[in-house]
Nucleic acid binder design. Sequence first.
DNA 1: GCTTCCATGTAATAGGTTACATGATTTG
DNA 2: CAAATCATGTAACCTATTACATGGAAGC
Lengths: 181, 181
Amino acid sequence: MLDVRTLCLGVLHRGDSTGYEIKKMFEEGPFGHFLEASYGSIYPALTRLTEEGLLSFRDERQKGRPDKKVYTLTDRGRTRFKEALLGQPAEDKFRSEFLFFSLFAELLPPGHMARLIDRQLALIKDKARVIEDRQAHAKTDGARFVSGFGQALYHAAIEYLENNRTMLEQEDSVGQLQNAQ
Amino acid sequence: MLDVRTLCLGVLHRGDSTGYEIKKMFEEGPFGHFLEASYGSIYPALTRLTEEGLLSFRDERQKGRPDKKVYTLTDRGRTRFKEALLGQPAEDKFRSEFLFFSLFAELLPPGHMARLIDRQLALIKDKARVIEDRQAHAKTDGARFVSGFGQALYHAAIEYLENNRTMLEQEDSVGQLQNAQ
DNA sequence: GCTTCCATGTAATAGGTTACATGATTTG
DNA sequence: CAAATCATGTAACCTATTACATGGAAGC
């Protein structure tokens, strides 16, 4: 339901920004880990929103850096965004190829599943660290709520993986013994 | 990385199935809640996999029900699937418009956020119930691990929402007082 | 010297979703 | 009587990802 254009309106509601910075917000910023958007979708979105009169922009020159276009919400853009917030959010979607692989753990060569779990844990712990940083800087209750939610889920995932990984690893005890040397 | 065709190979690795049943497995079955596929992608995938010699099928007539095509993995299909499992799973993706709305809770009309949270809780509790059923019937360690993981995350989400919802609701105390009557 | 960061943008492609078409039967 | 279930399939559409193009500066 929320397309990239609406997401951009939301980002810009929190303050002026460039296309490049918007992308960063979906990677590590306040929108990180629960939404995504690529440059290939953000830049065209900003252009079209400007054509529709929902955004305006100013060019900013920088020393030693490329020029940037700083976008601002217009009054109409602000109104449009609030209208979008009156609709219902789409259901959450979670896609995990890791869990798919887990279902077929017994088909994998010895030790492979253990490596996948190690990688999975590393990825999640990394995200958990980023989000902890974010929570420290959160300015609004909304931002605190969202990063707190992320933390709660990540910690639950880490705990589960660490406590239950043997369920998937026991089949390849050979590989494990080798690793233990 | 895993396209619908590979997912179908995986489903059929656990036993013969029809396109219709495969879709159900992504809704409530063992693949539910962490992968998705629509009829519009499953049926063409099965056709193409058959053309490639990775699947075969038999027609089954039923009384009072439409005929169905029951697909089976061929040896080559089985091999191909195991090869696919040697690659790396893509990173997990989580998309939540609910969290996006939460970030802008203070822009919503009084009581609206409370309703969104109620709905969110209802949705998650529903999924948690489905998954508990599934765990009871899980035959393999992989299946138990996956449904256990789902349960752990859902319970963490429910707990967090119930314990922290006031962070988002306190702004519209008027709406809350009205609801309390 | 190589890689990464900053910064914007386009074009081709691929992939899947949505909607449509059909129809008998069971359930509410 | 209406709606949901079972069952397969097609076609139009859309959206977004990927890769490409460009280029200076700073860090390793």
